[in-house]
Amino acid sequence: MKIIKKEDFKESKWAGGVTSEVFIYPKEADVSKKNFDFRISTASCELEKSAYTSYDDFYRFICPLDNKMEISVDDYKFNLSPFEILFFDGKAKTYSSGDLRDFNLIYKKGLEGDMEALNICNYKTYFKDLGLIFNYDSDLKINGEEFPKFSCLELENEEVEIKGQGKIIICRIKNKK
Results as ranks from 00 to 15, higher is better:
4 I>G: 01
4 I>W: 11
4 I>F: 09
6 K>R: 14
7 E>S: 13
15 A>I: 09
15 A>L: 09
18 V>Y: 00
28 E>V: 06
30 D>W: 06
31 V>C: 07
33 K>C: 03
33 K>H: 08
34 K>A: 08
35 N>M: 13
35 N>T: 01
40 I>K: 02
41 S>P: 05
41 S>I: 04
47 L>H: 10
52 Y>S: 00
53 T>D: 15
55 Y>P: 01
58 F>M: 15
70 E>I: 14
71 I>R: 14
72 S>L: 13
73 V>R: 13
74 D>T: 12
74 D>V: 11
76 Y>V: 08
77 K>A: 06
81 S>R: 10
83 F>Y: 15
85 I>V: 09
85 I>D: 05
86 L>P: 00
86 L>Q: 07
88 F>W: 15
92 A>T: 12
95 Y>L: 12
97 S>P: 07
97 S>K: 14
104 N>C: 03
105 L>A: 02
105 L>S: 00
106 I>W: 07
108 K>M: 10
109 K>G: 01
112 E>W: 13
112 E>V: 11
125 T>R: 14
127 F>L: 13
128 K>M: 12
130 L>S: 15
137 D>K: 14
140 L>T: 02
141 K>M: 08
142 I>R: 12
143 N>Y: 15
152 C>Y: 04
165 Q>G: 04
167 K>R: 03
168 I>F: 09
173 I>N: 00
174 K>R: 13
177 K>M: 14
